[in-house]
Every structure is written in structure tokens, then in C-alpha cells.
Amino acid sequence: MSEAVKPEPKLPPTHDAHAKSPRVLEENQLDHDLLRRKFGALVTDIRTEYKQTVIYTTPANVVKALAIAQGDPELNFNMLTDITAVDNMRRADFDPEKRFTVIHTVYSVPNKKRIRFETVVGESDPRVPSAAAVYKGAAWVEREVFDMFGVIFDGHPDLRRVLMPDYYEHFPLRKDYPLTGRGERDNFVRAEELG
């Protein structure tokens, strides 16, 4: 029996081309030694995941690390892209002490570099110091994270809800909150009954 010669499968070129793209390399690869030298003991781990530089830090140190990232002339991360959070509740290895991951994404416009800071906070007391003193724009996005996840930002100038109404009692993007809500959307009075 002679084995039929199988044609070699032709893979789409996208993935390889993406890896070799000079733009991706330039934008995302940061020298880990440089970052370790700059941040020192403030960070717990520095990794490159999916070609993105991720810095793991703690609630006590995250704002200090952000201040270094912004103030250091070599790093020069002068723009706060976003602050958001992830609810880890549905993960297989869920630990209530690691309920939320607060993510600060900063970008350096002159250097074209990006860093993601990840901070893990517990379920019982989800507190992170506010970055509003370092990046002024942080105040708005921290209100959003507070509104959706209930993470409290210590030292925030005005921590109120921003998307949901002030009377709202829940944090809708937490995984234990149902998608269709708990009846708030049906709880209004008809116009005729208001008189």
C-alpha cells in the first residue's frame, strides 16, 4: 500500500504576519529589565501576554506605580486610556479574595508604548486608591467602575454613580447580578395614576 501524498495544508497568513508586524512589536514590547528597575518593589510581576505588557501590582502600590509611569521622563506614560474591572466570579479557580481585577491602561504618546496595570481586590472590601491625583481624567472612569462593579476608590474627589440613577441599589456588571435586573425596569407608576 502506498501512502497517498497529502498536500500540505495551507494556513492563512494572518497570524504569522501579525507577529512580524513592526507596528505591533514597536507598540507593545517593553523591556522588562527597564520596568523592574523603574518600579522596583511596587510591582509583583511583569509579563508579556498576547504581545501586551502587563504589570501586576497591589492596591497599596498601584497609584505609586502609576505616578512613576507618568512622571519618569524615560517612561513618560502621559495618557490614561481607561480604568476598568473584571469580575472573576465565574472563573474555575475563583477565590473571594481575588474577586475583582481593576485594570489601569496607560499609554505613552511620545514613545508609542502601552502598559496594563492589573490589581486584584477582594470581595469583602473592594478598595483601590484613586488615581485622580495622578491622572485628572481618572475621576470619571473611576466613577464608572464604581457604578458598575462597586469598587470603591479611596481619595476620589466625588465618587457617585454616573450611568445608573442615584437610587439604584445594585452593581449591574457584577456576575451575580442577573442580566434582566431585579425588577427595577418594571417598577414605575403609570402616567394616569400620577394625576
Binding site: L179, T180, E184, R185, D186, R190, A191
Partner: peptide, 15 residues
């Protein structure tokens, strides 16, 4: 939009 903030029909509250 069968979601928490979306009113499921304004006819529930105005004629």
C-alpha cells in the same frame, strides 16, 4: 434589549 435598564415597552407606563 432584554436587559436591566431597558423599559420593556413604554405602553406599561404611558397610554
Amino acid at each position: 434589549f432584554n436587559t436591566y435598564p431597558q423599559i420593556q415597552g413604554v405602553d406599561q407606563f404611558i397610554p
